Simulated assay, not measured.
Amino acid sequence: MIKDSKFLNLIKDVDRSFKGWDFSFISGTGRMSSGLLSWSYGSQAISLIQGTNTMLDMGTGGGEFLSMLRPFPQTVFATEGYKPNIAIAKERLEPMGVTVVPIDEDTKLPFENEQFDLILNQHESYSPKELRRIIKENGSFLTQQVGGLDCVGINEALGVFLNNEFLNWNLKSAKNELEKNSFQVLYSQEEFPFQRFYDVGALVYYLKAIPWQVPGFSVKRFENKLYDIHKIIQEKGFFEVKQHRFMIKAKAL
């Protein structure tokens, strides 16, 4: 039985509440940090919004990011599939004129054919075929994706395999899928910046918020492995893994 009081107090952060898509409890306090990417999704999104009439933000979370992209076009929709986020997104976005639409699956979206000039997608799954149906000819699609090798170091440290369903999700496969569905890729980039956790409490909070990283995660199940990570942090100052990110800007043909 582990009796290290500092470790035991830190892992209690797994019980902290998490709402929307807000990691400020650990990122805003410097307990977790990430390396910089060579691109800015936000800057490219703002540039594309200018002169656009109809826009969709896919997987808006609690609307935190979208709310910072104002001024908006005349018509803006946002989708969200995670039920706890829907009410949060509506409360934040609807006063700004954004229509928030709950969805259940990517392959059947409740929109008309060729409805949008611009579709934004940050870290959300999508169906290229359905995407092409709802975007106008010459419309723009901008996405930043989390690749299948994201934070594999966490899984290795905990002795858990990555989900094979996403293992081959990368820039090459995403570009191929889009091109097969009548998109022209105008810009693409893929990188592996670091992600650091400066205490084990930040790590357990993070894993609770993203349950797909380590399915079935619980502090009790992985206590010994977490304590090993805690000792690494005590010795080195942080626990570092590699993120996997890629971005694509494409035009519908």
Rank of each mutant, 00 (worst) to 15 (best):
G139R: 00
E64A: 04
M96I: 12
K251D: 03
S173T: 15
N170A: 01
K242G: 13
Y126L: 12
E240P: 02
L186D: 06
Q243V: 07
R16Q: 12
K136S: 10
F238L: 09
G63T: 03
D57F: 01
Q145H: 12
F25W: 07
I46L: 11
E94F: 00
S127L: 06
I154D: 03
R92N: 10
A45H: 01
K249P: 01
Y198G: 10
M68W: 06
K6V: 13
V185W: 08
Q44Y: 12
E130K: 07
Q144K: 00
L109Q: 08
L149C: 11
F23G: 03
L93F: 06
P84H: 09
D4W: 06
G153E: 04
D22P: 05
E130R: 04
L131Q: 07
T52D: 04
A250F: 01
T60V: 12
L8H: 09
R92W: 03
Q243E: 14
F194Q: 14
Y206A: 05
I134W: 03
T52E: 07
K220H: 14
P211F: 14
K129Q: 13
A209I: 13
P95N: 05
S218R: 11
D57K: 01
M1R: 14
S33Q: 06
F7H: 07
E179S: 00
Q184A: 05
K108W: 04
R70L: 07
G139E: 02
K242R: 14
S125Y: 12
N170W: 01
G51S: 09
G62Q: 02
D57L: 00
E156P: 08
D150N: 15
V200Q: 11
G59T: 03
I210V: 15
F222W: 13
I135W: 08
E177R: 08
L162Q: 13
G35C: 00
V160H: 02
Q50I: 12
F183H: 02
S5V: 11
L167M: 04
N85R: 10
W39M: 09
L36V: 08
K129L: 14
D13C: 03
K90P: 00
I88G: 01
P95F: 04
E235R: 13
K242L: 13
V146I: 15
K225V: 11
P71C: 05
G237K: 09
I135D: 03
K231N: 10
G42E: 11
F25G: 06
T143C: 14
I135L: 15
L158A: 00
T29S: 15
P110N: 10
V146A: 08
L118N: 05
E80I: 00
P73L: 10
N121E: 10
L93R: 07
P211T: 04
Q189H: 10
Y205F: 13
V160N: 00
A45V: 00
K136P: 10
N113F: 05
S140W: 12
P71W: 05
